Amino acid sequence: MKKIGIIALALFIQNVFAQTNRFVYQVTMKPDAENKNDIKTEHAYLDISAEKSLFYSENRAKRDSTLQKAFQGGGGRGSINREQLEGFRTNINYSVEKDKSSQKVYYKDRIGRDIYVYEEDRPLNWKMSSETSKIGEYKVQKATTDFGGRKWTAWFTTDLPYQDGPYKFSGLPGLIVKVEDDKGEYSFDLMKNYKIAEIPTLNQFGNTLKVKRTDYLKQQQKYKTDPISFMQNGGGGFPAPPRAGGGGGNQNPADMRKRMEERVKEEAKKNSNPIELQ
């Protein structure tokens, strides 16, 4: 009986440590360089398991779940509630995965109909400070770094023994509870945490292309100037070209091109102050 009890205890401990921890951050952004009063706020998840962590938008997760249910129900695109999906719009279109064994950081983002993935090639060089404070229930310590053209201040706690944090931030002796840039344009604040069964698999419509970071930036710039070249074949999670009312014939391709280019330029204007400036 004693042996069975020890095995049961070992399995229980194994199960506890095998669980994934979800940390919910409030992300505050000023993405429009010409309108700093336009402040966007939303929640994002940092899911940490024994092997890796994944940072992504809460709205992305809700959108994925809604789409999955619609397709599993056999309704396809026609059964998707467009208004509901509109409510899941996010300014965090990327995801960041950190591999614990290799210490590599992977950034994923959609350009047009495909997903581009690159390995972060710039190390985070933290300067530790002896300054401490308290955020919520956590005793925190200060650290600073320059990254992506911004100066960042982070507050981490050893009460949560994860050398991780939101976005690409990691490598401190504890979990990052808060990190913000010196201009007050981007901040990540830990709100709560709880356990989940496992890190979910995000829906990846379209092809996944592994590129260098510099190539990703070039493609991103090209998309802003010529979005049509990225959308020639449709797909990638984008709806089929809309049809004209009445007769149901295809819309004029020139009109469609003009509208798409206008929409991309408008989106680029609204996101003219990205989290990484260089």
Rank of each mutant, 00 (worst) to 15 (best):
K3E: 15
G5N: 09
L11Y: 01
F17G: 14
F17W: 14
F17I: 15
F17E: 15
T20M: 10
V24H: 05
V24K: 10
Y25F: 13
V27R: 11
V27A: 07
T28W: 04
K30S: 03
P31R: 11
N37R: 12
E42G: 12
E42I: 13
E42A: 07
A44M: 08
D47R: 09
I48R: 10
I48W: 01
S49T: 10
A50C: 02
E51G: 06
L54E: 07
F55N: 10
S57C: 13
K62Y: 03
K62A: 05
R63V: 02
D64N: 15
S65A: 14
S65E: 13
T66G: 00
L67D: 12
K69Y: 03
A70Q: 09
F71H: 10
Q72D: 15
S79C: 12
S79A: 15
G87S: 07
G87L: 00
Y94S: 12
S95C: 08
V96C: 03
V96Q: 04
K100V: 00
K104V: 01
V105N: 08
V105S: 07
Y106I: 02
Y107V: 15
R110W: 01
R110Y: 04
G112L: 14
E119Y: 02
E120M: 15
E120R: 12
R122D: 09
W126M: 04
M128K: 11
S129P: 01
S129F: 06
E131D: 15
E131K: 10
K134I: 11
G136L: 09
E137G: 01
E137A: 05
Y138Q: 15
K139A: 14
V140I: 06
Q141D: 02
K142V: 11
A143W: 02
F147N: 00
G148D: 12
R150M: 09
K151D: 07
F156I: 07
D159H: 04
L160P: 13
Y162H: 14
Q163M: 12
S170M: 01
P173S: 08
I176A: 01
I176S: 07
V177T: 08
K178W: 12
E180Y: 06
D182L: 08
G184T: 03
D189S: 14
L190I: 02
K192Q: 00
N193L: 02
Y194A: 00
I196Y: 00
I199P: 06
F205N: 15
G206E: 15
G206L: 08
L209H: 07
K210H: 08
T214F: 01
D215W: 04
Y216Q: 10
Y216C: 09
L217H: 10
K218D: 13
K218L: 13
Q219P: 02
Q221L: 08
Q221G: 10
S229K: 02
M231D: 05
M231W: 03
N233T: 13
G235I: 13
G235Y: 03
G237V: 12
G246H: 12
G248K: 10
A254K: 09
D255G: 00
R257H: 01
R259W: 01
K265E: 14
A268L: 02
K269H: 04
K269F: 01
K269N: 08
N273P: 08
I275N: 02
Q278S: 04
